[in-house]
Write a protein that binds this DNA or RNA. Structure first.
Lengths: 187, 187
DNA sequence: CTTATACGTCAGCTATATTGACATATTTGT
DNA sequence: ACAAATATGTCAATATAGCTGACGTATAAG
């Protein structure tokens, strides 16, 4: 079924191995397959969550906020803006809704009380978890139909696709990450 | 650098090989790394083109239309809608602008004159090419910092991420695909 | 000759983002 | 103590990209 397409790509890949040193790839001819696959893959990937979010009257923007707040408890507004790369006015609309609906809560920073550190509530964490689970299932389905090396390869590929300057920030400040955000400016 | 993330994923992946039959991966714990990497990677990938499009006063929507029309000369409206998964009203706004600005042109179908078959003009093809080249350079940069197998792996991964029902359609009707209506000129 | 199809268009609505200006609380530097 | 910088909130206007619904027109097909 899908093997046709897959086979094609695999063949294309199996080019004269030695010819590929460091000048392996030139951009003389556009890499249309990857361009289009990336578009379709992303669209279908976010589609899953989009459909679930409709039940809560939330959109993709809410999802992103909820996700990152959940992953980085104690995240400050400025840090969130920096991750999302949107303006505070844009953020405020969706954040306000999440706060009012009780999915996220804000506490004043301890060392700097101007800050509003964000945390998911139990309810918010639940939804974030549901969404992450849904998207994880998508990945699991995908990875299970690919060789075992696929996960590492996908991780490496996606990481390399991220602007070099951003890759640092991507490495999630797990657990107590956000709290020390106070010093974010300092570093 | 990236090894932290990478190592983690590779280890997780290196589970008792035999245990990975069909139950290889469970979704008990969300695959946060891939979820976030995919988000950031897509954002940075489309960012390149977005910046170039500003010079033409076009947005991402114009890009998509231009791209697919360029790739599938002779594409009919209905087929384009099916690819983009938007409504005709949404399409019409951007398509009209592309037509008026002379980047795309429409000719009546020969066998069915109700259809408007879309083609890029020389100007449109030029811009499409520029954009594709820009995005290809992104991929080339990425693939050149990864092992040779990365391209095949990325292709397979992205293809698998696409909804199964869609994968067929994705296999680009290259060259004479839907456009073998080359006769369009003739008749 | 009626119905179905391919497409265009008007009108109004929503979600997500933008810029610019201004307000308020708090921290910091002198 | 005070001025300036900072973190955040908010009001207003605007743009883009999508949506639904309703209706019109040309062409194809039964």
């Amino acid at each position: 079924m899908k093997s046709a397409v897959q086979r094609k790509s695999l063949e294309a890949n199996a080019l004269p191995a030695p010819a590929r040193r460091r000048e392996a790839l030139r951009a003389d001819e556009p890499i249309f397959d990857l361009i289009e696959l990336f578009f379709f893959a992303y669209r279908d990937f976010v589609g899953d969550a989009d459909r679930m979010l409709e039940n809560y009257e939330f959109g993709r923007a809410h999802h992103r906020v909820l996700h990152f707040v959940n992953r980085r408890p104690g995240l400050a507004i400025a840090a969130l803006l920096d991750i999302l790369k949107i303006t505070k006015q844009s953020l405020n609309r969706v954040l306000k809704q999440l706060l009012e609906a009780g999915f996220v809560e804000a506490r004043a920073g301890f060392s700097d009380r101007r800050q509003r550190l964000l945390y998911t509530t139990a309810k918010g964490a639940g939804l974030a978890q549901e969404l992450a689970h849904l998207q994880s299932e998508h990945f699991v389905r995908v990875l299970n139909e690919l060789p075992a090396s696929a996960r590492g390869a996908a991780t490496d590929f996606l990481l390399a696709m991220i602007d070099a300057a951003e890759r640092e920030r991507v490495r999630v400040p797990l657990s107590r990450g956000g709290a020390r955000m106070t010093a974010s400016k300092a570093s």
